[in-house]
């Protein structure tokens, strides 16, 4: 998408205290390695020329998932307007990997960053038609005010980072 769309995405994420990093596909693995906190688990990245660093365990065991500090997953698309990433429920566990560890690192292709919720719903509908019909729109960090004050990182991650692949 346009630079403006990614800029808008970045501003929305700033408001949610979520970091955004732009990186080329060639440099992605190294960058991910630098920002993950170990132990880390992940779901494999479907972007051409991009793979997870060796320090990120794919196909984790339940014990590894429970112990992980970071979960790295691809997301189907992102909605710039709200700073939302769309986590798809895949058989390799992207949903629990994005949910259980304290930190979620979401990797998205720049071409998959859409401007607004309507465009997001178009993408969602395309995915539904292709059988990808379980998706979480995740926006910012898990939060609650139920204990009398706003606290982040309740059941879901208290830290979120987004990596935008500039050339994908």
């Amino acid at each position: 998408m346009t630079v403006d769309t990614v800029g808008r995405f970045e501003r929305a994420l700033e408001g949610l205290e979520v970091g955004l990093e732009r990186v080329s596909a060639a440099d992605a693995s190294e960058r991910i390695e630098r920002i993950v906190e170990e132990p880390a688990v992940g779901a494999s990245l479907p972007f051409e020329g991009v793979s997870l660093p060796a320090s990120v365990t794919t196909e984790p065991t339940a014990g590894e998932l429970e112990a992980a500090r970071t979960g790295v997953t691809p997301v189907g698309f992102a909605v710039a307007e709200y700073g939302t990433v769309a986590v798809e429920s895949t058989a390799d566990g992207a949903e629990p990997i994005s949910l259980y560890p304290d930190r979620h690192v979401a990797v998205v292709a720049e071409s998959d960053v859409v401007p607004d919720l309507s465009a997001g719903f178009e993408r969602l509908a395309e995915g539904f038609d292709a059988g990808r019909d379980s998706v979480v729109f995740a926006t910012g960090r898990s939060a609650t005010a139920d204990m009398g004050d706003l606290v982040h990182g309740v059941h879901g991650p208290g830290d979120v980072d987004v990596i935008v692949l500039e050339d994908r």
């Binding site: 429920s89 895949t90 729109f137």
Partner: peptide, 27 residues
């Protein structure tokens, strides 16, 4: 928008999680 808008068409493809078998891959 809320933090999580979860749209599930269950049963989903997500693997079930059996934490009492911690050494089994979740997949």
């Amino acid at each position: 928008i809320s933090q999580y808008v979860t749209m599930l068409s269950p049963p989903t493809d997500s693997p079930t999680l059996s934490f009492d078998s911690p050494d089994e891959p979740i997949t």
